[in-house]
Nucleic acid binder design. Structure first.
Length: 217
DNA sequence: CACCAGGGTGGTT
DNA sequence: AACCACCATGGT
């Protein structure tokens, strides 16, 4: 079921090439900046940080709050996000760098990330998957909406169950990362344009339908 | 003009 | 536990 959905989405949209970034810290920074924000705007903020030579843990930690806020302004929520980036920089330094964090087991690293200000389940899983190559599925609004439409409408499993189900079915970090990217790409192109879309299929020419996915599963 | 975008937090019921 | 307002810019 999940694997068939993945194949259909990949066939329809092609590889998405997530996460676009130079290094792992940039992925973590991007994961914070993109919260409830169009990627275009988050990317503008990242470009400014790059021009300001601020894409380093030490720089994020020491930069003046007002300057940091000014740099990331295009990403919106710039005051809260600036505080989150400062905390993130300090955290990476205190942890002994990103390589040291990469030595931690996934479950423990996840709990640590969740303890940071402004990093919730979705941001933590995005960092685990894209920055640390862990086999994790990112449950977001697009995923919930898609699976609610594919399954019987009205009974969407809790996030933890949906997450575990996808991770069991896809297995590798590469496939889980691609699945999430494909779901977002799909949602942005089709579902967002048609809020009352029932099965993401016939009317929208998405390339698959609930019935088609069940058939091939 | 309203609405939304690759969420999270703190307060209220 | 389920809601709610809030954070704020840039594109349709």
């Amino acid at each position: 079921m999940i694997a068939a959905l993945f194949d259909a989405l990949l066939e329809q949209h092609g590889p998405q090439g997530w996460w676009p970034a130079e290094d792992r810290l940039e992925i973590m920074v991007g994961a914070v900046l993109v919260q409830r924000t169009a990627w275009r705007n988050a990317a503008l903020a990242i470009e400014r940080l790059r021009e300001g030579d601020a894409l380093a843990a030490e720089r994020l930690a020491e930069l003046d709050t007002v300057q940091l806020e000014a740099m990331i302004k295009p990403a919106g929520f710039f005051r809260v996000k600036a505080a989150r980036l400062t905390a993130l920089g300090r955290f990476v330094i205190e942890s002994g760098g990103i390589d040291a964090l990469g030595q931690l087991p996934t479950g423990r690293l996840r709990r640590i990330l969740l303890s940071l200000p402004g990093i919730g389940p979705e941001t933590a899983d995005a960092i685990l998957g894209y920055a640390f190559d862990r086999p994790v599925f990112v449950v977001d609004a697009y995923a919930r909406r898609l699976f609610e439409r594919l399954e019987s409408p009205g009974q969407l499993p809790p996030d933890v169950d949906l997450k575990a189900k996808c991770e069991l079915a896809m297995r590798t970090a590469a496939r889980l990362n691609e699945l999430h990217a494909l779901i977002v790409a799909h949602g942005q192109r089709y579902c967002a344009a048609v809020p009352d879309c029932v099965d993401c299929s016939l009317r929208l020419r998405c390339g698959y339908s609930a019935a088609a996915v069940r058939r091939s599963a």
